[in-house]
C-alpha cells in the first residue's frame, strides 16, 4: 500500500480549495492527507450501525418564509467592504467566458 498521496492528487485538492501551496507544503500534504485517510478508513470497519443519515441534529422540519419582500441594502452599503469596485459594480479580473 502506498504511503503517500501523489503530487497530482494533492494539487487537485489544493485546486478544489483554491489555496496556493508551496513545494514544501505539497510534500507535507502528500503524507498528512494519507495519514488522515488511513485514520478515516477505520470507520469502514463499522458495519453494525443503522443506516440513517443524520445531516444535522435538527429537532424540526424547515419552516417556510412567506413570499413577502423585506428591506434591502443600499448599493452603497453593498460596496462598503468591497476591495475592488467600479460604479455600482463589484470588480474582478476578467473571467474568460467559459
Amino acid at each position: 500500500m502506498k504511503d503517500r498521496l501523489t503530487r497530482e492528487e494533492v494539487l487537485h485538492v489544493a485546486d478544489l480549495a483554491r489555496i496556493e501551496i508551496t513545494e514544501e507544503e505539497l510534500e507535507e500534504y502528500q503524507l498528512k492527507l494519507k495519514d488522515l485517510l488511513d485514520q478515516v478508513e477505520k470507520i469502514n470497519e463499522i458495519n453494525d450501525h443503522d443506516s440513517n443519515n443524520l445531516i444535522a441534529p435538527w429537532q424540526n422540519n424547515a419552516e417556510y418564509r412567506q413570499d413577502i419582500e423585506e428591506e434591502m441594502l443600499d448599493p452603497k452599503e453593498v460596496l462598503k467592504n468591497v476591495p475592488a469596485k467600479s460604479g455600482n459594480y463589484i470588480e474582478v479580473p476578467v473571467v474568460i467566458n467559459e
Binding site: 418564509r65 413577502i68 419582500e69 423585506e70 428591506e71 434591502m72 441594502l73 443600499d74 448599493p75 453593498v78 460596496l79 460604479g87 455600482n88 459594480y89 463589484i90
Partner: peptide
C-alpha cells in the same frame, strides 16, 4: 427576502 426583479440598478436588489 430580497426582491426578485429584473432590469434594476446594479446591486440594488440584495441583502447580506
Amino acid at each position: 427576502p430580497s426582491k426578485n426583479g429584473y432590469g434594476m440598478m446594479a446591486n440594488s436588489l440584495t441583502n447580506v
